[in-house]
Each structure stands twice: as C-alpha cells, then as structure tokens.
Design a protein around this nucleic acid. Sequence first.
RNA 1: GGGUGCUUAGCUCAGCUGGGAGAGCGUCGCCCUUACAAGGCGAGGGUCGGGGGUUCAAGUCCCUCAGCACCCACCA
Length: 919
Amino acid sequence: MDKAYEPHSIEQRWYAFWEQNGHFAASGEGAPYCIMIPPPNVTGSLHMGHAFQDTIMDALIRYHRMQGDNTLWQAGTDHAGIATQMVVERQLLAEGKSRHDLGREKFIERVWEWKGQSGGHITRQLRRMGASLDWSRERFTMDEGLSSAVREVFVRLHEEGLIYRGKRLVNWDPVLHTAVSDLEVISEEEQGYLWHMRYPLSDGSGHLVVATTRPETMLGDSAVAVHPEDERYKHLVGRTITLPLVGREIPIIADDYVDPAFGTGCVKITPAHDFNDYQVGLRHDLPQINVFTIDARINDEAPEQYRGLDRYEARDEIVHDLKELELIEKIEDHKLMVPRGDRSHSVIEPFLTDQWYVKVAPLAAEAIKVVEDGRIRFVPDNWKNTYFDWMRKIEDWCISRQIWWGHRIPAWYDEAGNVYVGRDEAEVRAKHNLGDTPLTQDEDVLDTWFSSALWPFSTLGWPEQTPELKSFYPTSVLVTGFDIIFFWVARMIMMGLKFMGDVPFREVYIHGLVRDAHGQKMSKSKGNVLDPIDLIDGIDLESLVQKRTTGLMQPEMAKKIEKATRKEFPDGIPAFGTDALRFTFAALASTGRDINFDLGRIEGYRNYCNKLWNAARYVLMNTEGMDCGQGGGEIEYSLADRWIRSRLQETVREVNESIQGYRFDHAAQAIYEFTWSEYCDWYLELSKPVLTGDASDAAKRGTRQTLVQVLETLLRLAHPVMPFITEEIWQRVGPLAGAEGDTLMRQPYPQANAAQVNSAAETEMGWVMEFIVGVRKIRSGMNIPPGKPLPVLLENHRDEDRERLARNATFLERLARTESITLLAEGEESPESATALVGEMRLLVPMAGLIDKAAELARLSKEIDKLAGEVERGRKKLENENFTARAPAEVVQKERDKLAEMEASLNSLREQKGKIERM
RNA sequence: GGGUGCUUAGCUCAGCUGGGAGAGCGUCGCCCUUACAAGGCGAGGGUCGGGGGUUCAAGUCCCUCAGCACCCACCA
C-alpha cells in the first residue's frame, strides 16, 4: 500500500468493478428494501444538495444490502419540462432563433438531441459519488413505459371526473407563455404604490375613491365593491359609476370581502385579473373582462390608445391620463407581495385561460388519512404538520402547460371543439365512433410533476403487474428535501393510493438544505456555490474563479465574487476524495436541520481517511504472510485484545442503532471515535509490545488475529458511508480475517455480539489507561521530553493494583515510557516526587534532576482546588434532605460513591502536597 | 396575519425518555517515538440567548421576551 491515502487512484476503479459485476442489482433474496431516487433533471448536473441526499440514500441502500435484504435503488432521471425547454431555448437564442422558428416537431427533436448529449452527465456524477444505483433499471420520465403510465393515469382520472378542463383564472407567466401551478409562484415583498383613484358616479352626483396597487387593471373593472355594513357607502349600493378612460358604466356592489378599514373601503373589482375579484365576480355574476394579451400587453378590449402597451407602460399612461383628469387623489408608498415565476422570475399575471385540472380534494382526503394513522411516517415527525396544513386547504391542480417539451395531453378535438380523451387517437375514434372526422390533439403538455407523481410505480412497470411491482411497492423510504413536500411527496402519496391502493413509501426522511460555511444559501448569484466534484477532485484557484464568475445573471457581481473566492480559497480546493465528502455529509446529517458545509470539516474527515489508511498499513505490515490464527493453533488474547473486541461490540451496536434511526451523524461519530481514539490511539500502540516483544506465539497469534478481525469488522461497519477506501483495504484484509467473496459490498453487516462484551477487560484497561495518562501528564506538566524514560514509584497499592501491574507491565513500560516501576512498601519513605492518582494508588515520579518543585506544587494545587470544589458540591447535595429523601435510591448511592472516591483522591493529593512542601 | 425551526467553547455542531457540560476545527506548549506531521502527547476555553416557573435536581419540561432563519396566506 502507498504511504499516503490517494483517493483518486482507488475510487473509480472500484466503482467500475462493482457495476460490471452486477453488484448493484437486487439479489432477489431476503426482505425487499427499496428506495426510489428523486429523479434529477436529465440534463442537469450534480449539486451539493444531490450529493448530500445521495450519500444518505446510498448509505441506507448499502446498509440494507449488507444486511441481506433484497435491495433495490431505482435509478432514473426527469425530463423537467420548463427547465429543460428553457435551456434549449437559450441555446437557440444564441443562434438567433426562437423555438417558433423551428416549429414544434423540430424543436422537440432538438431537445432530445440535447438530452442525448448531456443526459449522461449527472448519472456519471452519481457514479463518482459511489451511488450504488441499479443502472440496469434506469428509467426516464419520458421513455415509452413511463409515458404510457402517464396516459393511463390521465385517462382513468378523466373517466372518473377527477380531471377536467375549464376556463379559470390561472397563474400566467407572460415570459414563458404558460400557466404554472400555485406552487411555482414565489411571492416576494416589494416596494410599490397605492394609487387612490376617483371613480365618478354615473349620475354626476360625486365620486368614490378606490385604492389599488395595479391601476392598469382598471381597464377591466366590472364593479366597485364596498362592505355591506359600511355606513359611508351603504346608500350607494346598486347605483353605478362610469369607469374613467373607458366609459363603461359599472355597478356598486356590496360584498363581505371588502375590509372597510383598509384604503378607502372601496375596491375596484377586476374579475379577469385578480384572484379575489374573480371570486367576487362569480358571486355577483359580473362580466370577466380580459384586457391583456399572453405577453401581458393591453389587448383590443381596451380603449385604442392603450392597446399594445406593456402592462407597466400602460400603468404609467393611465396614471398620467387620470392625473390630467384630476382623478388621482393621492399616491402612497405601499409594500406589496409581488408574485413571480420560480423559473422565469417574471411577474405572474392572473389570466383567464382554458386549462386542465386535477380535482384533488378526494385524493387529498385519503392522503391525509395515511399520514394521520401512521401508515406513512415523516422523519423528523414534525414535517407531517407542514404536510397536513397544505393538504387540508389544497386547491385543484392546474396540470396543463403551454410548452412543448413534456407529455402531450391525450385529448383530441373535433372541428366543433368537442373534446375526447383517450390513450391514443385510434382509441378515441373507436370509442366515440368518430370515423374519419378530422381530430387535432391538444397542444398542451402536462406539468412535469404529473409524471413524477407516478414515479414509485411507473418505474416498476405499472400498469403491467410486474414482479418488481409486487416485490418493491410500497417502497421503504423516500429521502428528499422539505422544499418538494408539496410538489412531489404529497402528489406521489395521492397517486400511489389512487392507482396502487397503497402508500408509495412507508417513511419519508426529510433532510435539510446544504448551505455554505457561514449558513448562507448557495447560489450562483452569490458566488458561493461549491461543486461536489470539485471537492472530490480538487480545483485550482483560477478555474474556481472562472467557474464562479461566468454565466452570471448580474455580471457586475463578478469582481466581488472573485475577490471573496480568492480570499476564501487562496490555494484553490484540494482533492478530498469521495469518501471524505460522504463522511462529511453523514457527520453533518443531524435531524433534518440545514447543514453548513465547512471545508474544515471535510479536511478533518479526509485526515480520518488517511488515518484509517495508515492503520491498515500497520496491520498489514504485521499480519500479511504471518500466522493470524487462520490455521488453528493455540491463541491467547491480551488484555488489549479483549478490550478492543469489547469496545468494537459497543460501537457496532451504536452504529446499527443510529442508522436505523436515521442518525447518520451519530453513526459517523461512533465510527470515527472508535477508529481513532480507541483502535489507533490505544490498541495499535498496545499491540506493539506484544508483536515486537518476547510474548508467546499464542499471544502474538491472538494479537495478530485481533488486529485483523477488528479492522475487517470496522471496514464492514464503515462501508455504507465510505465505500471506496473500505473496499480497497478490505480486499487485502478480508482474506486474512477469513472472509470470502469478491467484494466488501456484499459482505454481512456487523451485528453486535453480546458475548464479546467484556466489562472486566474494560475496567482493567481503564486502570492501565489511567496509569499511562498519569505519567504522560506529569511529563507534559514538567516539560520532560516524551522520549526520556522515567522511574516510577507506586504507593498505597492494593492487591488488585499489584496483580494488574504484574499482568500489564509490558504495556505500561512501553506506553508510559518508564525506566522502572517500583512498588513501595507501606510506610516506606518516598523521595520528592511528582504525583498522579490511579484510583487510590499514588504514582510517583521522583524529582531528582527532572522536576521543578514549584511547578509540581502549582500543578498539585490546581488539581486540588478543582477536586475540592467538586467535593464541596457533592457534600452539599448529600446534606440536602430533600435530595436524599426524594431522589431515587440509586441516584443517591451513586452520588455517595462518587463523593467517597473524590474525597479519597483529595486526601491523597493533599498528603502528597504536604510532603513535597516539607522537603 | 398564521405556522415551524434555531440560539450550547473563537467557528461549525452533538447532547436520546430531566440526575457528573461534549466532539471536530481553530488556539497554546512539548515531540519528525520505525502505521500516519493529513501525525503523536498534553493544555486552555462555556453563568447552555434573557427572565420567570415546575422539580430534591433543568442545556433537557412549561410560560414569557428577544434575535435569526424558513414556510404558508387573497387585504385591494
């Protein structure tokens, strides 16, 4: 093995090996365990959120696979309608063309081309992450099978009346020229104005003042509303005003919707351009007057002078014209929520169009029930409240999009405009006896999330009743971010229940967002994005700056971003390797919280990989080609052997428990702690005196066997989190430990074995450690070089201490670097010494020539003060009768034991201090 | 306007059903001891956001205030 850990040289080799040997496929044996990958955009690339999420899923999948479950991680990608179409349109724009120049068919061809060209990118990146997805089953939301599932669901829902077409007010994106769902609209507070406009009464007897944030919509006003109880206006209800600039006579109506306290208490009602007004309009049977084109320009319904103007130009004109007519009473500053499209970021316009809808209420009712009764469990649990809140007030889902890339709606129209829904045109003709009547298919496509909602069963072959569907549905757990609970999770639950009659997954693990080191959201515009692949492979500063400053929406930010980047990464980013990255994600993955990704953390875990690597080198150095007890032969285990085996069991138990509870941070912590602080810091050191000393063959065999077996178990234990380094090492360590098979990823996952827990060994080892640490502290406190052997005297020892000393002398001599260890008889004079306690035994290092008396006194005083404080606290507690009477007996007893122990130590230290002072 | 989460060492965070404040990184000191300087050994550092309550006992439970973050919502 190389002296230093080089992730680059091992990772891709092992991935290829696993994939080529079919190790990612479900075994077909054992209890089914299945995770559906949230399909990434087919033409996208991997970001930190993916990397985090995929690490968690892969850890779960590898864990269950090793547990012997029939494990499937379903691979696939999403066509991402609007997002992908936008990318291709941007490419066309660069060629000076629009999609309309190409026409629908050519444009779609072009998107498929782009998919073919870039579609493998993200799946290659997933491979770099070590994700053990079953690629042989990879699906795409627009492949033939999934498309037919989409049509099937559409037709069946339509037959049941759960899909309908209707003219309604929708969220319209005037840049993308498509409707979007409520969820795709992001409202942000922006500074605006409140215009107070005078609307003259038709009879010339005066005017009303209406307040609005959108004066241009007045062209479509069809009423003015006041509150029915509003004394100021009650008498005007039923009369009319004449709409300025337009001349239309419109009624004054009374409606509860109006808040008399806001503005003037009079509201202009524009049913075709405002969601509230739309409802008011329905209640009062008002005309819906649409004054916009699909570009949000003024259409021909409006007076001639405004036609063709953009909505904001029209606003200026109208305000100007009203001012001329002295119809603007005042203009106030006003903060308002502006709705913007999440993709185009353009201001969304409520717009009257024909669209397709899913009637969700009946589906939602079932979907609420399964979470209420625990058939689906959210982790962490509190996310179910978010889910309920949304589901209980859910509105119908607008599923049609006026774009080209996606599943075309399976509906056809005859020349009279009648609509027929069916799986294909032939079916429609046959079913409705249409003969040769010319039919045209609906131009719209479905919302991308419509096909995503079917993902848990469509990927398994539905509507065919496949064996996969039978084995793996319902799937085990869904791992996803909170941001798509509504978009995706809720809809999968509804569709799964509807078409499979069962939940799509039993648990939903919701993870947090990956932020930068300072808790800022990563975004291109902030220039703080980290690319997981750069963390794996490393990137030099110039390339990183280049990457962060090209393609910015606001190029003026480039300077600032460059400066910040140069400051934060003066040497670029070193290559940390996939395992370190994965370990970092696992270690940061505490209960659903956002995680701040700190380079210090990944560096620490890269160091951990190196530590493991070197530990393995040491083990191999001392075991390869040697007798590790594989062939039988007498075996004797040292205290250290028994101790590390015992500690390993505790670690195994903890890791299993943690993974089962989705506490990857605890699992990572336990693995890290065991490897570094126990196996490396203590056990490997303790193995040295056995292996290099004059221990018996049986003892050497015992230690070699323990070195190898514990390491092999540790590799299996850590494999789900760090698959590459563990596989690389296991290939050499596995055989020494008697393991069979060509890969670690198919080995059994360690299970805790209570029989190997050895509390006697742990206690005695505790004594040994106390002894060694005691000497080290004296050494460090007195500035004695680590290499200098020290004489040690022991005072106030009991039988047990003497026995332990005899059994473990070689360990103590080596690790404490003693020159000699001498037992002092009771009452025997001891020289001036520095002291440490091992239980009640005093460990003395004579000062002669070594130790500064003042320093030792200071050291003792400090320790005495600390201990005295604790003793005082313990005493007070025990003197409190309320405590002794009311606290559980065991707690009180524990407190008493503790106090006694501390008092003994305190006395011992004081005695020693006195002795030194007297000398 | 509703709702959720967070506030613990200089930084990033653990701390499960209430019973002796922890880790990593950073800092300081001593060491190139033949697995590892991406390392070893040791040290320092916190009135657990403020206030109140329950309890023998509160970082942990309850109330309240403050700050931060996010989600939802039709006040023109």
